[in-house]
């Protein structure tokens, strides 16, 4: 998982200017975070990384980088897409 690419994907998802989302950003502080964009995030990770996010694990992630490492590694917070 390339962290720069992941931040760029989040820029697209949240319709932000390129380079807005930083690895140290808190997910829920990203402008436009809502229940709908949360579903968008789940869909994007499912499609791009074939991982089905567990929402509770996402909410516990301290930062974008934290979430990226969960998606990219073996973690109890995620599951392989069905």
């Amino acid at each position: 998982m390339n962290l720069t690419d992941f931040c760029s994907q989040l820029d697209d998802l949240f319709e932000l200017d390129a380079g807005t989302v930083k690895p140290t950003d808190s997910l829920q502080q990203i402008p436009g975070w809502s229940s709908l964009t949360f579903m968008g995030l789940i869909a994007m990770v499912d499609e791009e990384y074939e991982v089905t996010l567990k929402p509770a694990a996402v909410l516990k992630a301290a930062s974008v980088a934290d979430l990226a490492s969960l998606i990219g590694g073996d973690s109890a917070g995620m599951s392989k897409a069905a």
Binding site: S35, F38, M39, T52, P55, A81, A82
Partner: peptide
């Protein structure tokens, strides 16, 4: 309703 949880459940159960 927790929309994110419902969506995750849907992805896990509906295609199979």
């Amino acid at each position: 309703m927790d929309g994110a949880e419902i969506f995750t459940f849907t992805l896990q159960e509906v295609p199979p």
